[in-house]
Amino acid sequence: MRRLGLLRLALGLAFVAGVSAARADGLIVSLSSREVVIASNYQGGSITVFGAALDKDGEVRPPGPYDLVVTVRGPLETIDVREKTRVLGMWINRRGRDFVRAPTFLAVLTNRPVAEIADPATLKREDLGLEAAAERRIAGAGERPTPEDAAFVAALRRLQEGRRLWREDARGVDFIGASLFQGEIALPPNVPFGTFDVEVRLMQQGETLARQTTSFQVVKSNFEARVAGLAEDRRLAYGLVAVGLALLLGWLASVIFRRD
């Protein structure tokens, strides 16, 4: 396994050295793949982030007390969290909070717990970690979240983690050798579709030294994409096809099983 990891790292770095590598001051980053195709047998997958920390002269930085934060954000949506309360003896949705432009998928990979990397104010300002991601996006909340807001923030995080769509991994980034690093982005079976932005930050004592972004796509394979595309764009035709299928299968059943 270890050897395989190193081999992949080597391959990744070969890719990094190529023309399409994303490069900025102090950080180069690449992904093992730019596209994940979801076909009918899809049961989850993963993408590896490779990178190296460089200093200003382009030399590999010696290992030091640095932190790496890899944030992967899936397509943004308004996520509505609701709380059931007792009404007339029944548990019914009453209060709710909207989380505006929240990532439907969010993975935060770091080399140690986010809370140790920077203070809460910085985390919130820089949108680092799940807690900050939820707090920043709550609609209509003031500077300081009320206890009720905090309950919804915790609920969003808990529910998304339960669906394996949000994840914070304090050991998700491995340093290999001097300043090479790699991290594994696990994609669950229910991964949403669209563009996933990958942001890598090199940090030291809570300050961002370098920041680099790249992205990958999660797309439906031909058949699934065509079905979903038709359902969305040619709604009437799609509905009529469903109707035709229902009639066809109903008729077939009556022919096959006819007993009179």
């Binding site: 949506e77 996520i79 509505d80 709380e83 059931k84 548990w91 432009r101 439907t104 969003l156």
Partner: peptide, 19 residues
């Protein structure tokens, strides 16, 4: 039973329009 028994998880999520 689902309606009257206190749920383990009173919170639920729904995603609305693409932002």
């Amino acid at each position: 039973a689902d309606l009257v028994i206190e749920p383990d998880e009173p919170f639920s999520i729904s995603q609305t329009e693409r932002a």
